[in-house]
Protein backbone atom coordinates (compact mmCIF):
# COMPACT_ATOMS: atom_id res chain seq x y z
CA UNK A 1 0.00 0.00 0.00
CA UNK A 2 2.43 2.66 -1.11
CA UNK A 3 1.21 6.09 -1.95
CA UNK A 4 2.98 8.68 -3.99
CA UNK A 5 5.61 10.22 -1.78
CA UNK A 6 5.46 13.97 -1.53
CA UNK A 7 9.24 14.09 -1.59
CA UNK A 8 10.47 12.13 -4.57
CA UNK A 9 13.52 10.09 -3.85
CA UNK A 10 15.71 7.96 -6.06
CA UNK A 11 14.91 4.30 -5.74
CA UNK A 12 15.68 1.15 -7.66
CA UNK A 13 12.40 -0.43 -6.66
CA UNK A 14 9.47 -0.47 -8.98
CA UNK A 15 6.29 0.20 -7.04
CA UNK A 16 5.40 3.81 -6.90
CA UNK A 17 1.84 3.96 -8.19
CA UNK A 18 -0.85 3.66 -5.55
CA UNK A 19 -2.82 0.53 -4.89
CA UNK A 20 -6.12 2.11 -5.93
CA UNK A 21 -4.84 2.48 -9.46
CA UNK A 22 -3.80 -1.17 -9.61
CA UNK A 23 -7.17 -2.20 -8.29
CA UNK A 24 -8.65 -0.15 -11.11
CA UNK A 25 -6.41 -1.93 -13.57
CA UNK A 26 -7.56 -5.32 -12.29
CA UNK A 27 -11.19 -4.29 -12.67
CA UNK A 28 -10.55 -2.98 -16.17
CA UNK A 29 -8.64 -6.05 -17.33
CA UNK A 30 -11.37 -8.27 -15.95
CA UNK A 31 -14.00 -6.28 -17.78
CA UNK A 32 -11.96 -6.37 -20.95
CA UNK A 33 -11.66 -10.13 -20.62
CA UNK A 34 -15.37 -10.67 -20.06
CA UNK A 35 -16.41 -8.32 -22.85
CA UNK A 36 -13.91 -9.79 -25.25
CA UNK A 37 -15.17 -13.29 -24.53
CA UNK A 38 -18.87 -12.62 -24.91
CA UNK A 39 -18.93 -10.00 -27.64
CA UNK A 40 -20.34 -11.36 -30.90
CA UNK A 41 -21.64 -14.44 -29.11
CA UNK A 42 -25.34 -15.33 -29.25
CA UNK A 43 -25.56 -17.28 -26.05
CA UNK A 44 -23.06 -15.08 -24.20
CA UNK A 45 -22.91 -15.80 -20.53
CA UNK A 46 -25.24 -18.77 -21.19
CA UNK A 47 -22.16 -20.76 -22.14
CA UNK A 48 -21.01 -20.56 -18.54
CA UNK A 49 -24.15 -22.52 -17.61
CA UNK A 50 -24.24 -24.81 -20.63
CA UNK A 51 -20.80 -26.22 -19.89
CA UNK A 52 -21.52 -27.75 -16.45
CA UNK A 53 -25.09 -28.65 -17.42
CA UNK A 54 -23.91 -30.67 -20.42
CA UNK A 55 -21.29 -32.44 -18.32
CA UNK A 56 -23.92 -33.11 -15.67
CA UNK A 57 -26.05 -34.85 -18.28
CA UNK A 58 -23.12 -36.98 -19.44
CA UNK A 59 -22.13 -37.89 -15.90
CA UNK A 60 -25.71 -38.77 -15.02
CA UNK A 61 -25.92 -41.10 -17.98
CA UNK A 62 -22.49 -42.70 -17.62
CA UNK A 63 -21.91 -42.88 -13.88
CA UNK A 64 -25.41 -42.98 -12.46
CA UNK A 65 -27.35 -45.00 -15.05
CA UNK A 66 -24.59 -47.21 -16.48
CA UNK A 67 -22.01 -47.18 -13.71
CA UNK A 68 -24.55 -47.39 -10.92
CA UNK A 69 -22.85 -44.88 -8.66
CA UNK A 70 -25.23 -43.64 -6.01
CA UNK A 71 -25.05 -40.15 -4.55
CA UNK A 72 -25.70 -41.11 -0.96
CA UNK A 73 -29.35 -40.14 -0.77
CA UNK A 74 -29.55 -37.07 -3.05
CA UNK A 75 -30.43 -36.86 -6.73
CA UNK A 76 -27.34 -37.67 -8.82
CA UNK A 77 -27.72 -34.69 -11.20
CA UNK A 78 -27.67 -32.31 -8.26
CA UNK A 79 -24.73 -34.15 -6.77
CA UNK A 80 -22.73 -33.95 -10.00
CA UNK A 81 -23.63 -30.34 -10.72
CA UNK A 82 -22.50 -29.28 -7.25
CA UNK A 83 -19.05 -30.63 -8.07
CA UNK A 84 -18.95 -29.44 -11.67
CA UNK A 85 -19.54 -25.74 -10.95
CA UNK A 86 -16.38 -25.28 -8.85
CA UNK A 87 -14.52 -27.66 -11.15
CA UNK A 88 -15.23 -25.61 -14.28
CA UNK A 89 -14.32 -22.43 -12.45
CA UNK A 90 -10.95 -23.99 -11.63
CA UNK A 91 -10.41 -25.55 -15.04
CA UNK A 92 -11.37 -22.49 -17.10
CA UNK A 93 -9.34 -20.14 -14.93
CA UNK A 94 -6.22 -22.25 -15.20
CA UNK A 95 -6.76 -22.83 -18.89
CA UNK A 96 -7.09 -19.20 -19.92
CA UNK A 97 -4.75 -18.01 -17.17
CA UNK A 98 -1.87 -20.12 -18.43
CA UNK A 99 -1.69 -18.28 -21.74
CA UNK A 100 -2.65 -14.89 -20.32
CA UNK A 101 0.80 -13.33 -19.91
CA UNK A 102 1.76 -14.40 -23.40
CA UNK A 103 -1.51 -13.03 -24.75
CA UNK A 104 -0.90 -9.68 -23.12
CA UNK A 105 2.70 -9.56 -24.23
CA UNK A 106 2.27 -6.19 -25.86
CA UNK A 107 1.57 -4.53 -22.55
CA UNK A 108 4.00 -6.71 -20.60
CA UNK A 109 6.88 -5.66 -22.85
CA UNK A 110 5.86 -2.02 -22.99
CA UNK A 111 4.62 -0.80 -19.67
CA UNK A 112 5.33 -1.50 -16.06
CA UNK A 113 2.65 -2.68 -13.68
CA UNK A 114 2.56 -5.62 -11.26
CA UNK A 115 2.38 -8.55 -13.66
CA UNK A 116 0.27 -10.73 -11.38
CA UNK A 117 -2.70 -8.53 -12.23
CA UNK A 118 -2.98 -10.26 -15.60
CA UNK A 119 -3.48 -13.88 -14.46
CA UNK A 120 -5.56 -12.72 -11.48
CA UNK A 121 -7.85 -10.87 -13.89
CA UNK A 122 -8.40 -14.15 -15.69
CA UNK A 123 -9.55 -15.76 -12.45
CA UNK A 124 -11.78 -12.77 -11.71
CA UNK A 125 -13.34 -12.96 -15.15
CA UNK A 126 -14.29 -16.59 -14.43
CA UNK A 127 -16.01 -15.51 -11.24
CA UNK A 128 -18.78 -14.16 -13.42
CA UNK A 129 -19.21 -17.58 -15.04
CA UNK A 130 -19.16 -19.10 -11.59
CA UNK A 131 -21.94 -16.78 -10.46
CA UNK A 132 -24.07 -17.61 -13.49
CA UNK A 133 -23.58 -21.37 -13.02
CA UNK A 134 -24.31 -20.98 -9.30
CA UNK A 135 -27.63 -19.30 -9.94
CA UNK A 136 -28.70 -22.38 -11.91
CA UNK A 137 -27.43 -24.45 -9.00
CA UNK A 138 -29.73 -22.46 -6.71
CA UNK A 139 -32.65 -23.31 -9.00
CA UNK A 140 -31.70 -27.00 -8.84
CA UNK A 141 -31.61 -26.80 -5.04
CA UNK A 142 -35.12 -25.41 -5.04
CA UNK A 143 -36.31 -27.98 -7.55
CA UNK A 144 -34.94 -30.86 -5.48
CA UNK A 145 -36.25 -29.22 -2.29
CA UNK A 146 -32.91 -29.07 -0.47
CA UNK A 147 -33.10 -27.30 2.87
CA UNK A 148 -30.69 -24.69 4.16
CA UNK A 149 -28.85 -25.81 7.32
CA UNK A 150 -26.36 -24.14 9.58
CA UNK A 151 -23.57 -25.87 7.64
CA UNK A 152 -24.50 -23.87 4.57
CA UNK A 153 -22.73 -20.96 6.27
CA UNK A 154 -19.44 -22.76 5.56
CA UNK A 155 -19.91 -22.29 1.82
CA UNK A 156 -18.28 -18.80 1.60
CA UNK A 157 -15.16 -20.07 3.38
CA UNK A 158 -14.94 -22.99 0.97
CA UNK A 159 -15.39 -20.58 -1.90
CA UNK A 160 -12.43 -18.54 -0.63
CA UNK A 161 -10.35 -21.72 -0.55
CA UNK A 162 -11.37 -22.53 -4.10
CA UNK A 163 -10.39 -19.06 -5.34
CA UNK A 164 -7.10 -19.19 -3.42
CA UNK A 165 -6.09 -22.54 -4.86
CA UNK A 166 -7.20 -21.58 -8.37
CA UNK A 167 -5.26 -18.31 -8.19
CA UNK A 168 -2.18 -20.14 -6.95
CA UNK A 169 -2.20 -22.67 -9.78
CA UNK A 170 -2.93 -19.97 -12.37
CA UNK A 171 -0.05 -17.77 -11.18
CA UNK A 172 2.25 -20.76 -11.36
CA UNK A 173 1.28 -22.01 -14.82
CA UNK A 174 1.12 -18.52 -16.34
CA UNK A 175 4.61 -17.63 -15.08
CA UNK A 176 6.27 -20.85 -16.19
CA UNK A 177 4.46 -20.71 -19.52
CA UNK A 178 6.32 -17.49 -20.30
CA UNK A 179 9.55 -19.48 -20.34
CA UNK A 180 8.31 -22.78 -21.71
CA UNK A 181 5.27 -22.83 -23.94
CA UNK A 182 5.07 -26.59 -23.29
CA UNK A 183 3.22 -25.69 -20.12
CA UNK A 184 0.01 -24.95 -21.97
CA UNK A 185 -0.47 -28.39 -23.62
CA UNK A 186 0.70 -30.11 -20.45
CA UNK A 187 -1.89 -28.17 -18.48
CA UNK A 188 -4.60 -29.24 -20.92
CA UNK A 189 -3.77 -32.90 -20.46
CA UNK A 190 -3.35 -32.67 -16.71
CA UNK A 191 -6.71 -30.92 -16.38
CA UNK A 192 -8.44 -33.69 -18.30
CA UNK A 193 -7.05 -36.29 -15.92
CA UNK A 194 -7.55 -34.09 -12.89
CA UNK A 195 -11.31 -34.14 -13.39
CA UNK A 196 -11.34 -37.87 -12.73
CA UNK A 197 -9.05 -37.89 -9.70
CA UNK A 198 -11.30 -35.33 -8.04
CA UNK A 199 -14.47 -36.63 -6.37
CA UNK A 200 -16.86 -34.94 -8.77
CA UNK A 201 -18.60 -37.83 -10.53
CA UNK A 202 -18.36 -39.97 -7.41
CA UNK A 203 -18.26 -39.38 -3.66
CA UNK A 204 -14.86 -39.83 -2.02
CA UNK A 205 -16.44 -42.45 0.25
CA UNK A 206 -16.74 -44.74 -2.76
CA UNK A 207 -12.98 -44.65 -3.36
CA UNK A 208 -11.21 -47.80 -2.15
CA UNK A 209 -9.45 -47.21 1.16
CA UNK A 210 -5.88 -47.63 -0.14
CA UNK A 211 -6.31 -44.93 -2.82
CA UNK A 212 -8.27 -42.54 -0.73
CA UNK A 213 -5.35 -40.66 0.73
CA UNK A 214 -4.00 -39.94 -2.73
CA UNK A 215 -7.33 -38.48 -3.71
CA UNK A 216 -7.28 -36.52 -0.45
CA UNK A 217 -3.90 -35.01 -1.37
CA UNK A 218 -5.70 -33.21 -4.18
CA UNK A 219 -6.79 -29.87 -2.66
CA UNK A 220 -9.89 -29.80 -4.82
CA UNK A 221 -11.18 -32.97 -3.12
CA UNK A 222 -11.63 -31.32 0.24
CA UNK A 223 -13.10 -28.18 -1.32
CA UNK A 224 -15.65 -29.97 -3.50
CA UNK A 225 -16.57 -32.57 -0.89
CA UNK A 226 -16.85 -29.73 1.61
CA UNK A 227 -19.12 -27.66 -0.64
CA UNK A 228 -21.34 -30.69 -1.16
CA UNK A 229 -21.69 -31.52 2.50
CA UNK A 230 -22.31 -27.87 3.35
CA UNK A 231 -24.96 -27.21 0.71
CA UNK A 232 -26.34 -30.44 -0.75
CA UNK A 233 -26.20 -32.69 2.30
CA UNK A 234 -26.36 -30.03 4.98
CA UNK A 235 -24.05 -31.90 7.26
CA UNK A 236 -20.71 -31.44 8.96
CA UNK A 237 -17.78 -31.61 6.53
CA UNK A 238 -14.93 -34.08 6.76
CA UNK A 239 -12.68 -31.78 8.82
CA UNK A 240 -9.33 -33.57 8.32
CA UNK A 241 -9.92 -33.69 4.57
CA UNK A 242 -10.83 -30.02 4.54
CA UNK A 243 -7.82 -29.18 6.71
CA UNK A 244 -5.48 -30.80 4.23
CA UNK A 245 -7.13 -28.84 1.42
CA UNK A 246 -6.83 -25.56 3.26
CA UNK A 247 -3.17 -26.12 4.13
CA UNK A 248 -2.27 -27.16 0.60
CA UNK A 249 -4.22 -24.31 -1.00
CA UNK A 250 -2.49 -21.74 1.18
CA UNK A 251 0.90 -23.28 0.46
CA UNK A 252 0.29 -23.35 -3.29
CA UNK A 253 -0.93 -19.74 -3.32
CA UNK A 254 1.99 -18.40 -1.29
CA UNK A 255 4.56 -20.52 -3.07
CA UNK A 256 3.23 -19.59 -6.49
CA UNK A 257 3.15 -15.90 -5.61
CA UNK A 258 6.75 -15.92 -4.36
CA UNK A 259 7.92 -17.75 -7.47
CA UNK A 260 5.93 -15.39 -9.69
CA UNK A 261 7.56 -12.32 -8.17
CA UNK A 262 10.96 -13.92 -8.62
CA UNK A 263 10.36 -14.63 -12.27
CA UNK A 264 8.47 -11.51 -13.30
CA UNK A 265 11.62 -9.45 -13.78
CA UNK A 266 12.47 -11.63 -16.74
CA UNK A 267 9.04 -11.76 -18.36
CA UNK A 268 9.63 -8.88 -20.76
CA UNK A 269 12.94 -10.36 -21.90
CA UNK A 270 11.82 -13.85 -22.80
CA UNK A 271 8.14 -13.56 -23.57
Amino acid sequence: MTTVAAERTLTDRAESINAAAYWQLLVNLTRREVKGRYSQSLLGIGWAVAQPLAMMAVFTLVFSRLGNISADGVAYPLFAYAGLVPWFFFMNSVNSGTMSLVQYRNIVTKTYFPREIIPIAQVCARLLDFAAASSVFALLLIYYRVDVTRWTALAPMLFVLLVAFTTGVTLLTSAVNVFYRDVSPVVQIVLQLWLYVTPIAYPIAKVPERWRRWIAANPLSGIIEGLRSAIVYGREPDWPLLGVSAALSATVLIGAFVLFKRLDKYFADVI
Binding site: A20, R32, F113
Partner: peptide, 11 residues
Protein backbone atom coordinates in the same frame (compact mmCIF):
# COMPACT_ATOMS: atom_id res chain seq x y z
CA UNK B 1 -10.34 3.88 -18.62
CA UNK B 2 -8.43 0.69 -19.39
CA UNK B 3 -5.34 2.50 -20.63
CA UNK B 4 -5.53 5.04 -17.80
CA UNK B 5 -5.38 2.16 -15.34
CA UNK B 6 -2.15 1.00 -16.94
CA UNK B 7 -0.71 4.43 -16.32
CA UNK B 8 -1.84 4.43 -12.72
CA UNK B 9 -5.01 6.47 -13.00
CA UNK B 10 -8.05 5.62 -10.93
CA UNK B 11 -11.58 5.82 -12.29
Amino acid sequence: YLGGGLFGLTR
